[in-house]
Design a protein around this nucleic acid. Structure first.
Length: 569
RNA sequence: CGGGGCGUGGCUCAGUUUGGUAGAGCACCUCGCUUGGGACGAGGGGGUCGCAGGUUCAAAUCCUGCCGCUCCGACCA
């Protein structure tokens, strides 16, 4: 590629709309341009990176026994109605009508499509297992598109779906995908970690997310410093904390004027925060949900959703609290009717004795509250968020927190869709059974952004060589200097002949401009050709990642040397 | 959806308080000069000031409504 012809307009200044570094750099380096909120055009450089990532994904998917196909983006409403998700999916689904006013959507995912496809063609256990995948644009009308490609409304995704005869076979398919994902992200040169993930209503140990470790990541993960355990904080399971046993004391009401937070109350009553219980109120389609955790703990909303088996969970309004006979800041389980309001109590709270909590009226708390005697929960469950002071749920070791960008997820669907959409097969006894499914996603465009998030410096992007748009840039320092120009062309052409993806900056620009753009775009290797080294019959090689500069003699060996160098980047 | 901020040439922004000729830097075009880390000089092109109403002799500026972008909270590759 000749940079003089390359459509990659670089910007000197950071566009005001970009907040995170990957977004800023992709705009500045001429990789993409915005069409609307969360919707972008990929310019040639970005497309090359995407194709590199896709090629790696394809190789590993094919290797793992999956077959590529391509399903429609425009999907009829009927199959979504059949699975029940047409109404559940809500505002996030891009919907449209055809000229006959029939309902369609732009595919946010393809479980319905693939299941209705497969059910028509697969009838026998002999045709299983089957794993199909596609790479395609997905559409989700996000509440809040942000961070450039990290959360777009249109994005590129690889989605795979496995069909097996039973759960044992699903485990094998799942493991094959898990291993393929590990290879994919390793080959992309990313620092990532698979973590246990919430699998929602489907339950079981059925999901892992692949997280690229980055401070700008939207997800929070915990990992053990002593064993292999790693999980999304949403998922991390916690055993009930036991408390020191002590005799029950008499329930007592105390005045706590203007003590609306747990810190206020403990301060005012001179009480240890571990002797207090705080409440968080939510509303859902099943009504009000009051959650109780120890004062120094936090509620994990995902766990609440799973425990109560609800879909929508929102913070309750003061009005709703009044109606339920309580008041914000002074909520407590004592005297609440578990028939009218869901009372969800964290299992650690059930081990506490003589604790303090709200009395459901202003400026008033109870002391010496005891589970069993003073209130009846609707549910007792692990509903709290893991904290860094907690022990590893697996080995009891010390845990640490980090942030991550979710670039992939593997998920056991079991028979959720095959039952809803009647995708069945006949086993060897002629018995009809639902296929056991799994689904596996890679955010391709997000992976590109994540790679930048993790690999950049003040000068620009530092592409891992495996996914760089071009691997080598040849820079003639001054195109008017005939010898430099000629030698640069020769080196460029030799690199191309050797199968190296090279570009040459043949623009009539000053060297500073070319160097700045080279760093910004992030070519892994830069070769500078100018009088300074040419007089010694050498070319200068600079490694973008390390800043290391070396000279190579201008003979037949330099192409080989560069090839070897690239393998190490 | 709720809450904040912002919409002025391609990009970054000034001008809005106090209404009166639309500006700067970068980018772009021409010429000259320059060439190892975003040079310099001269000349030039490009803006319905987000949109629609209103107030006024006069609106980028004041008023009303709408739209878009962005950040903070509930969702997810």
């Amino acid at each position: 590629m000749r940079v003089s012809r390359l459509y990659a307009p670089t910007l000197r200044e950071v566009p005001a709309e970009a907040e995170v570094v990957s977004h800023q750099l992709m705009l500045r380096a001429g990789f993409m341009r915005k069409a609307a909120g969360g919707i972008y055009s990929y310019l040639p450089l970005a497309l090359r990176v995407l194709k590199k990532i896709e090629a790696i994904v394809r190789e590993e998917m094919d290797q793992a026994g999956a077959q590529e196909l391509l399903m429609p983006i425009v999907q009829p409403a009927e199959m979504w109605q059949e699975s029940g998700r047409w109404d559940v999916y809500g505002a996030e689904m891009f919907r449209l009508n055809d000229r006959h006013n029939r309902n369609f959507c732009l595919g946010p995912t393809h479980e319905e499509m693939v299941t209705t496809l497969i059910r028509a063609d697969i009838r026998s256990y002999r045709q299983l297992p089957l794993n199909v995948y596609q790479i395609q644009n997905k559409f989700r009308d996000e509440r809040r598109p942000r961070f450039g490609l990290m959360r777009g409304r249109e994005f590129i995704m690889k989605d795979a779906y496995s069909f097996d005869r039973d759960e044992v076979a699903l485990d094998k398919s799942y493991q094959a995908m898990y291993d393929a994902y590990t290879r994919i992200f390793t080959r992309c040169g990313l620092n990532f970690r698979p973590v246990e993930a919430d699998s929602g209503a489907i339950g079981g140990s059925g999901s892992h997310e692949f997280m690229v470790i980055a401070d700008s990541g939207e997800a929070e993960i915990v990992f053990c410093t002593e064993c292999e355990y790693a999980a999304n904080v949403e998922k991390a399971e916690l055993a009930a904390i036991s408390s020191v046993d002590e005799p029950m004391q008499e329930l007592k009401s105390v005045d706590t004027p203007n003590c609306k937070t747990i810190a206020d109350v403990c301060n005012y009553l001179n009480l240890s925060i571990e002797k207090s219980v705080k409440a968080v109120a939510y509303t859902s389609e099943k009504g009000l949900i009051l959650c109780f955790v120890r004062g120094d703990h936090e509620v994990n909303e995902i766990k609440v959703i799973n425990t109560c088996n609800v879909i929508n969970l929102e913070m309750a309004s003061e009005e709703e609290l009044t109606k339920a006979g309580t008041v914000g800041g002074y909520m407590g389980p004592v005297g609440m009717d578990p028939e009218k309001v869901m009372i969800v109590v964290d299992s650690s709270v059930m081990n506490m004795h003589n604790f303090c909590c709200g009395a459901n009226k202003s400026d008033s708390h109870y002391l010496n509250v005891n589970p069993g005697r003073d209130f009846t929960p609707t549910f007792v469950a692990d509903i709290r968020l893991i904290q860094e002071t907690d022990a590893c749920p697996h080995c009891g070791g010390k845990i640490s927190k980090a942030r991550g960008i979710e670039v992939g997820q593997v998920f056991k669907l079991f028979t959720k869709y095959s039952e809803a959409l009647k995708a069945t097969y006949l086993d060897e006894n002629g018995k009809e059974k639902p296929m056991v499914m799994g689904c596996y996603g890679v955010g391709v465009s997000r992976t590109m952004a994540a790679a930048i998030e993790q690999n950049n410096d003040a000068d620009g992007i530092i592409w891992p060589a495996a996914i760089a748009p071009y691997q080598v840039l040849v820079v003639p320092v001054n195109v008017k200097d005939e010898l430099s120009s000629q030698m640069a062309e020769e080196v460029y052409s030799n690199l191309l002949k050797a199968g190296i993806e090279a570009a040459i900056d043949d623009r009539k620009e000053r060297p500073g401009v070319k160097f700045k753009d080279a760093d910004l775009i992030g070519y892994p290797v830069r070769i500078v050709i100018g009088p300074k080294t040419l007089t010694e019959k050498q070319i200068e090689i600079k490694i973008r990642k390390t800043g290391e500069v070396m000279s190579l003699p201008l003979n037949d060996d330099y192409v080989k040397a560069i090839k070897e160098l690239l393998l190490k980047l």
